[in-house]
């Protein structure tokens, strides 16, 4: 029996009501917003921040972003949810540096998976953050990405951790993944 996946629809401008109601100004519905708490996991602490930029370079300040990653030992299990409605449209994530993960007889380089939804995004966008100083030569996912576009998946070291800006369009358009 084969059925087709339900069609996606945009999360719309009011996605925060559904996914982070406390943050959206609906206190008391839930004890706290899912995925908003501090990340307690084994590994070296690291801070990531970034913005989502549209085709005119404007910051997308109404997006919700979810993170799924491994801890320092390479075991997946860290999930977090953030909004991009900070002052500059920055999202910020205090997490741990993921470890390499076994896949298909080899090793995937440390990475953090992102899923992004917002008004104007018709299907949630999946991408990955990699760290520039790691060895990416055996990574089965990066191997599918044209070499000229791999830099869009690399975090950029900054003063207190890394930046990862997502470009929805333009010459630096981030690579999005169809898994």
């Amino acid at each position: 029996m084969t059925q087709r996946e339900s069609p996606s629809q945009t999360a719309g401008p009011y996605v925060h009501i559904g996914l982070m109601p406390n943050h959206a100004g609906l206190p008391g519905l839930y004890d706290g917003d899912l995925g908003a708490g501090p990340i307690m996991a084994e590994g070296q602490p690291v801070t990531l921040r970034g913005r989502i930029l549209d085709g005119e370079g404007a910051s997308v300040t109404d997006a919700v972003l979810e993170v799924w990653q491994a801890d320092g030992t390479g075991t997946p299990g860290i999930w977090a949810r953030r909004s991009t409605d900070g002052p500059d449209g920055d999202w910020v994530l205090d997490t741990v540096r993921p470890g390499p993960m076994r896949f298909d007889g080899g090793w995937m380089a440390p990475h953090i998976a992102l899923w992004i939804v917002a008004r104007g995004i018709n299907l949630g966008l999946q991408t990955r953050i990699y760290f520039p100083e790691d060895d990416h030569s055996a990574d089965a996912v990066l191997a599918q990405v044209p070499p000229g576009r791999r830099r869009t998946l690399m975090a950029v070291p900054d003063a207190d951790g890394y930046r990862f800006d997502i470009h929805l369009q333009g010459p630096d358009e981030t690579v999005f993944l169809n898994i």
Partner: peptide, 25 residues
Amino acid sequence: YRSSRLRGPTQAPIAIPATPTETTG
């Protein structure tokens, strides 16, 4: 749908194998 004009990626997503990152959640 006007909002998608500047927010929709112009390049097709790149097919990758489903790894433990995608098959767990």
